[in-house]
């Protein structure tokens, strides 16, 4: 098990290294210099800046510098905010995005699991049909559409919640809901498939043959086995929530890294774009890692076989 974890950590670091190298290379590949937008700079200032950032040095040297700075948490300065350190912005804004993402994930997953269980138990009845219809719609419609609908319906039309901003619990409801719908739909669908699969297993009949009550069979035998594979969707879910949060933060003017990211795309603030990209990649890679380990811990079949190979 320990060896397995170490191996996964190794993979994780390699992937992350590839990501930061790729971001570096794309910086170098960007048309013109990163200061192209700062047209008003005099050639002298430009040279100063180039020197300050080591841009006058050969690319391999710059690369080493870049890695060195990266390890020390220096992601460069933001163009749109007068070269203030990107790291500082990210640190300031990341918690907001994290909060939003976690709220959406937790709400969506719990509701999704419940709906999926119900649909799986009442398979082929109206409840199942309704849940699955809702789920297809939830999976299909992009979160930026949901965000728009919710904003228009519950903030503009009926003024239940604030239109925008991030202050107080009321302001969390609409953005978190628009992100959670997709999560909920995906989880519900997955959970239903698993429930149906598990309820058809022989060991469910064994449990019934023991004389257990229906609820004991469902709770003790079915749900636990159906829940294990849910862990595998956490990875794709994280990706979906991150993607969604970019637009949802933008629509609700939430001061997270998502809206920051969109701003920096509009203003060609390359260091900020790269820094945010790296944060996203890092988050995704860590999530995949945790999912892998978690799966091994929760499923006894994998837990033991992992132990034997190490």
């Amino acid at each position: 098990m320990v060896r397995y974890i170490l191996k996964r950590v190794g993979y994780m670091l390699v992937t992350f290294y590839v990501v930061i190298t790729l971001t570096f290379l794309s910086m170098k590949l960007l048309p013109g210099t990163p200061f192209k937008t700062a047209n008003r700079l005099t050639p002298q200032q430009l040279n100063q800046l180039r020197h300050y950032y080591g841009l006058d040095q050969p690319i391999p040297v710059q690369y080493v510098h870049y890695l060195w700075n990266f390890i020390h948490g220096d992601l460069g300065g933001s163009f749109q905010y007068g070269m203030q350190p990107v790291t500082q912005f990210l640190l300031q804004r990341f918690p907001v995005s994290l909060e939003l993402g976690v709220e959406a994930m937790i709400a969506g997953t719990i509701l999704g699991i419940l709906l999926g269980i119900v649909a799986g138990i009442y398979r082929a009845r109206f409840l199942d049909w309704g849940t699955m219809t809702f789920s297809v719609i939830g999976i299909s419609i992009p979160s930026f559409i949901f965000a728009g609908i919710l904003q228009y319906a519950f903030a503009v039309n009926v003024q239940l919640f604030p239109v925008a901003g991030w202050s107080g619990p009321m302001s969390h409801v609409l953005p978190a809901t628009s992100l959670a719908i997709g999560v909920l739909a995906l989880v519900a669908r997955f959970m239903r498939t698993e429930m149906v699969e598990v309820l058809n297993q022989d060991y469910i009949v064994t449990a019934q043959a023991k004389g257990l009550t229906t609820s004991a069979v469902v709770f003790r035998h079915a749900i636990r086995n159906a829940l294990i594979p849910i862990i595998t969707v956490i990875g794709p879910l994280t990706a979906a929530v991150v993607t969604g949060s970019l637009v949802v933060e933008n629509i609700f003017a939430i001061p997270g890294i998502g809206s920051q990211f969109v701003d920096s795309i509009v203003t060609n603030d390359y260091p900020m774009i790269m820094g945010t990209t790296e944060v996203y990649a890092g988050m995704f890679i860590i999530t995949i890692f945790i999912v892998d380990i978690l799966y091994g811990v929760i499923d006894p079949r994998i837990r033991v076989s992992g132990g034997q190979t190490s």
Binding site: Q201, T206, Q208, K210, R224, N225, P300, R301
Partner: peptide, 28 residues
Amino acid sequence: SNKQMQKIRGKEISMIFQDPMTALNPTM
């Protein structure tokens, strides 16, 4: 009723199944 049968199953009448590979709950 199902409730009454639950008192019979496993206690008065019980059953062994064909495939032992799938008849046991893998996570218990």
